Simulated scan of single mutants.
Amino acid sequence: MTRALDGPAATALDALPCALLSFDASGRVCGHNARLLQLLGRSARHLKGCRLDTLLSAGSAMFLRTYVLPLLLGHGQADEISLDLLHADGSELPVLLSARREGLGADAVVHCAILPAPRRSDASQELQRARREAERARGHLERANADLDRFAASAAHDLSEPTRKVRAFGDRLLQSRRSQLHPDDLDYVRRMLAAAERMQAMIDGLQQLSRTGQDRGPGPRRPLAEVLREVLEESDRHITAAAAQVSVGELPEVEVDATAVAQVLQNLLSNALKYRREGVVPEIRIDGGWLEDADAPTWWLRLRDNGTGFAPEHAHRLFEPFLRLHDKHKYPGAGLGLATSQRLARGLGGNLEAEGAPNEGASFTLTLPA
């Protein structure tokens, strides 16, 4: 029979806002209320003895067999399962189904309560549209960044030759005409050469920055402690020249992209050695650990110094290319090291952040997924 109840009880069930459906151990419909007929656009005669999976979309029928029925068999109940019913006109109707099993084996009957979920389809369509828009926007951004990287690389290459010639002819002028030049003229030549040196440093930094935007692929993976040790060994001459004290604390045991992480560490260490205060022994502390509240395993490494520091409101601007917060004559460089480092960090799926205060030092924290 296709009606589990008759008389007043059936009338009460028909008045419920949710559809009711029962099916037996063979998967055939053995009970329903009028609301289900309304949802399906079918008559009671069409439902008599039909299999439940014929009332579902192909995907929902497979989901019923592979997930819902085993769940009911093992636990006896299933709550708010998303399925698509098939209307008589062939359209799909998203619903939420909650079910309870009664009895075992061949005598088992499953009773279901079904509520329409028309908004699910609309939300899904909106989500799909939003995803497509996001993909298009990301594609435009990636192409724009790629074009910018190519332009930067081309511009850096084209500027290198005239800059080298300015430096070369300036050096020749000093060597061959030094005794014939007025002291003021000598000063002009020296300033010209110093400016050319700064220009070359900016060109080199621009080339390096453009290369970080290219798809270089993953580098060799090695233990973080090993990568840091090599960076410190390579920088030993500069550390000694600055009379700096470098200490390394606890580090996370993790393998990293050795090429990219080494470059970030070199840039951060170079900055810490460069922006030191006069009359103060440079102190650099490096340590790290694991983020406890991250959704996925994420490690961090922090480099702190006691140098010149910076105003906290400028923290987000430190990573802008060519930005210089300090006297460019006192602190040489192109202003691209931090921009390159943050780009490398983000390319690895992480980030680089800065904190500091004037004359109290700076702290840079690198976070990366394991």
Rank of each mutant, 00 (worst) to 15 (best):
V95W: 03
L291T: 05
S57D: 14
G213V: 05
Y275N: 05
D287R: 06
S179Q: 08
D53N: 12
R304D: 06
R150L: 12
A243F: 01
A196W: 10
W300N: 07
H46F: 13
F169A: 12
L56C: 09
Y331H: 14
A272V: 02
A225W: 00
L127K: 12
L115C: 12
P8W: 08
D6S: 15
S363W: 00
R100E: 07
A357I: 04
H46D: 15
A152I: 05
D53L: 07
I81L: 03
C18S: 14
E102G: 02
S82P: 15
A311L: 14
N359T: 05
S247I: 05
L13T: 08
D14C: 02
H32F: 01
L20E: 06
E230L: 11
H329D: 13
V254R: 12
C112R: 02
D147A: 13
K328L: 10
R191P: 05
S43V: 05
V246A: 06
Q263A: 13
S98R: 01
L251N: 08
T240H: 14
V280Y: 04
A152H: 02
R216A: 15
P220A: 15
D184Y: 14
P297M: 06
D89H: 01
D158W: 11
R3S: 15
M199L: 14
H157T: 13
M62A: 15
T2N: 11
A34M: 02
L174A: 05
V109D: 07
R42H: 09
G349V: 07
D147V: 10
E80L: 07
G76F: 00
Y188D: 11
L209G: 11
P8I: 02
W299M: 07
A25F: 00
G288N: 06
L323M: 15
Q263V: 05
E133G: 03
G356Y: 00
Q175L: 12
A241P: 00
D53F: 06
R42G: 09
A262K: 00
P220R: 13
M192W: 04
L344C: 02
A225V: 10
A311Q: 12
A58S: 14
T367K: 09
A194W: 07
D89A: 07
V280W: 05
L348T: 03
E292H: 07
Q128N: 13
L39T: 07
D257M: 01
A334Q: 08
L52R: 06
E135C: 12
L186W: 08
F364M: 08
L104K: 10
D24C: 09
G288E: 06
H326P: 09
A272Q: 03
A201M: 10
G356H: 00
R35Y: 00
L366S: 08
L228Q: 06
L159F: 13
R143M: 11
A61Y: 09
Y67D: 15
R177M: 12
A345M: 01
R302L: 04
G217W: 00
T2G: 14
V231G: 09
A201C: 05
S124V: 06
A153L: 07
A334C: 10
Q208G: 10
A134L: 09
A225D: 14
W290M: 12
L352P: 01
P8D: 11
K274Q: 10
D215G: 08
L181W: 03
G249Q: 03
T11Q: 11
V281I: 12
A195I: 02
V231M: 06
V95T: 09
S363Q: 05
Y331V: 09
G105P: 08
P218M: 10
L232H: 01
A242S: 09
Q208P: 04
L352S: 01
A244R: 00
G41F: 02
